[in-house]
Design a protein around this nucleic acid. Structure first.
Ligand SMILES: NC(=O)c1ccc[n+]([C@@H]2O[C@H](COP(=O)([O-])OP(=O)(O)OC[C@H]3O[C@@H](n4cnc5c(N)ncnc54)[C@H](O)[C@@H]3O)[C@@H](O)[C@H]2O)c1
Ligand SMILES: NC(=O)c1ccc[n+]([C@@H]2O[C@H](COP(=O)([O-])OP(=O)(O)OC[C@H]3O[C@@H](n4cnc5c(N)ncnc54)[C@H](O)[C@@H]3O)[C@@H](O)[C@H]2O)c1
Lengths: 216, 216
DNA sequence: AGTTTATTGTGAATATTTTCACAAAAATTT
DNA sequence: AAATTTTTGTGAAAATATTCACAATAAACT
């Protein structure tokens, strides 16, 4: 039914949904592809193409109903029910994620953290943090499917292997290393170092006036 | 001289450089486009194409000299000298970044943090954290060109405006909102919520077996 | 020295993504 | 109720990005 799904189109869909949440809380009831395009920084045809991939229909000349669209996107993105997530590695990044309040309103709940340096259970807010040896049991008991890896790169593959073996299906990885996963598990990497280096590159480029770069 | 530069090609270049650092520390002196391709998860022709954009040459049948290549990439990426970075908003993410030791080896140094909730100077490790009203003076005195924005989305545009006015040329923004910048300033957004939502989407997709997705 | 082998560098071929552009349809105006 | 306006939905076109494929070439071997 759905044929070609690029990662980018999914990211855009999630972006549209977040924009719609804001529009909705402002009381808007109707939105045009043009509005979404402006907010997301893309072309309006892109917005409509993205929607058409998922057979989302609007009203010619009437745009889209904000709440209806919001619901359709939430459904597509699997956000119509709460998704439980665990975080492995409660260091700098792990703590930041567990502390963050903003995930709840995306229907994402961090239900536990795990760290190898702990000998006994702790807590951040009301999220329990466990010694790493509790993880296997926790995943099975709570049917967790999504995990964040925020351990040093040297431990990341080892952690991933355990996660996958216990049934984790999706991973967001902060360790700056390429991990290998079986096809049954999706992994997405966030490399903050690279993000910063990229900005630095463009700034140097502008400074040296080597080239006029297009807007990013 | 340089004509078309996609963001992706820059990210890949930074990736190659990071891989080379690791190879070098393992004592390797020679590398083939095939090796880099494997480590970066791309096609080897892609590696060579990326290099050819910057006129980086290897030796036919001899591959590339690790240290020479490393140096060339560092030069291109503007990493041959230390880049000073400031962080605005010392909350969850801001603290994680300031605490992180890994930037130094990429020649990036976080030289100060700023937060509106502070009345007097503090410190994280040996990075000074200042009340926000010290920021303008600091940027000018220290000729800072790169900043991280890690304040709530409601303050982000306001912070950006100040930064730009004082001469910041590149921004890494964590606030989940589209900011407007003049052409003289590059901005790159990291939206951790979206990253997580994307993983969730793919996991649900796999679960429902709607489609066989290509590897991400 | 000549032959074989391995790898680069890059045009050409493919594939993917984005944008254009316009008919179709619905709302609004006359 | 006809004409006008506005916006969708989507093929077609354009732009970008990736991969193929192979001549050029340098190292290694005989
Ligand atoms: N903090 C940043 O700003 C930043 C920036 C770029 C990249 N990263 C990357 O993100 C990852 C996390 O960074 P961080 O700064 O939070 O690191 P950190 O050292 O602060 O935290 C890592 C945590 O993982 C735990 N750990 C180690 N091995 C483990 C294991 N096998 N199982 C469970 N827990 C384990 C450690 O006890 C520690 O608490 C690293 O790979 C780092 O390179 C972080
Ligand atoms: N922490 C996460 O895991 C996470 C995840 C997704 C997105 N984000 C986004 O990243 C940004 C930072 O998140 P956080 O969790 O660190 O938030 P936070 O609330 O912990 O920290 C924000 C900090 O910014 C400071 N601040 C507010 N206004 C300021 C101003 N005008 N000038 C200077 N400082 C100011 C506050 O005092 C606070 O210390 C937010 O926009 C958030 O939506 C964070």
């Amino acid at each position: 039914m759905i044929s070609k799904l690029s990662r980018n189109s999914i990211v855009r869909l999630a972006q549209y949904k977040n924009i719609l949440n804001k529009l909705s809380s402002l009381g808007l009831v109707k939105v045009f592809s043009d509005n979404l395009a402006d907010a997301a920084g893309v072309n309006s045809a892109q917005v409509r193409k993205d929607f058409s991939q998922f057979s989302i229909k609007g009203n010619r000349r009437g745009g889209y109903d904000v709440n209806e669209l919001r619901q359709q996107l939430a459904q597509i993105l699997g956000k119509d029910e709460v998704t439980k997530v665990i975080v492995v590695g409660i260091g700098n990044i792990g703590k930041a994620l567990v502390h963050y309040k903003g995930f709840e309103k995306e229907n994402i709940r961090i239900v536990a953290g795990f760290d190898s340096s702990l000998k006994s259970e702790g807590k951040i807010g009301n999220v329990p943090i466990y010694p790493i040896d509790r993880i296997e049991d926790f995943i099975l008991r709570n049917k967790i499917r999504i995990a964040v890896i925020s351990v040093p790169d040297t431990s990341a593959q080892e952690v991933l292997n355990i996660l996958v073996k216990k049934g984790i299906k999706g991973i967001l990885n902060f360790a700056p290393i390429r991990l290998t996963t079986p096809k049954s598990c999706v992994i997405h990497n966030v490399n903050l170092g690279l993000e910063l280096e990229t900005v630095i590159f463009y700034v140097n480029l502008l400074k040296d006036k080597k080239v006029a770069i297009k807007r990013i």
